[in-house]
Design a binder for these strands. Structure first.
Lengths: 184, 184
DNA sequence: ATGTCTTTTCAGAAATTTCTGAAACTCATG
DNA sequence: CATGAGTTTCAGAAATTTCTGAAAAGACAT
């Protein structure tokens, strides 16, 4: 399982970007190889393709499974386990966003709620208000996200394709949504 | 500059979460202190509040400035520099998203474009197609994001408050956007 | 049960990131 | 132009994260 030039460059890029995300380099690379592969791959193929240890691949796959980004697939007449990414890129993006929300937003939201419930001490009025504002704000965005997430993929595609029409709400005759100025 | 219990817990939480994001713990903490503070703070106040080295604060502030999340503010009759976060949480969120896009999405997009321009070698047809699909996909989402980003804050707020009305597009009589099934 | 093939776990090695203290720099003021 | 309060830089120390090799655990056929 040697990678072509194209594959190698793609995989290396995902390795680098991995660090900017918060996933280990190899985890990004494993994902990238699976993403490009036409068929499911077994762990050894990944070891060969990436030149990392078998155990590292095992742990990476485990992490990717915990993100629901990789599935196990059994191949008839082969004892080894095979792995694949979902075909549908929309599905991948949905999963990614859902998982990031779960890991990055939800814990913060519950901390904020907890802090907000406390009776603020003497000088805490401002901090307390600021925390409440932040919490409300995040909740609002999450409601919006959940609305979008309810839409079928086809609808989402259409919504994004429409593009302009969101701001048509702003520019059309009976507009409700003013645009903002260019700056910043 | 000692922190109250409320402040301390908030700040600590942001420190922890910082790691899940890709910003150093102290950077998250510095930001959190400034976010809660009613008035701009000088670097030494942060040193005291957090118990970290002066140089660490200096570097953290520099990083936060590079993210446009913190501004310098001069206080009359004081030689020290003061720092503050924008008051408006919407502004903060916009900045955060814009910066994350710049750091996490844009470089990937340009790599993908570059890879796509290459003439695919022998066995690369599938990988090439997959890369193209990913690129298109990301571009679509970015166009959508840019549309939303054009809206004035007030409009965004309204859009998010409306909540349901996005899916009204789906459920209303002349609906265009079907909802998807509960699963996943 | 036993042997073979495969995957997982885990302690510590290696690599990377974060943080510190000391030195260098900046700049308004005497 | 020397002083000193304040800030930044940077080399290396400390902490954290990632990766490896060896050993344990599973799974399946015989």
């Amino acid at each position: 399982m040697a990678l072509s030039d194209l594959e190698r460059d793609f995989v290396m890029h995902f390795g680098e970007m991995g660090s900017r995300w918060g996933i280990a380099r190899t985890v990004g690379q494993i994902y990238a190889v699976l993403f490009l592969s036409e068929r499911p791959l077994c762990a050894d193929a990944l070891v060969q393709a990436l030149g990392v240890s078998r155990s590292n691949v095992s742990m990476g796959l485990k992490e990717l499974e915990s993100w629901n980004l990789v599935r196990r697939k059994h191949v008839a007449g082969d004892r080894r386990e095979y792995f694949e990414t979902p075909e549908d890129i929309w599905q991948i993006v949905r999963t990614l966003i859902a998982e990031r929300k779960k890991r990055e937003i939800d814990p913060t939201l519950s901390t904020l709620r907890e802090l907000e419930l406390r009776t603020p001490a003497e000088g805490d009025a401002h901090a307390h208000a600021r925390i409440a504002a932040l919490r409300e704000h995040i909740e609002g965005m999450m409601r919006f996200y959940e609305e979008l997430d309810r839409l079928e993929t086809k609808s989402l595609v259409r919504l994004m394709k429409m593009g302009r029409s969101i701001s048509h709400l702003a520019t059309a005759p009976g507009r409700i949504l003013p645009l903002r100025n260019k700056g910043a």
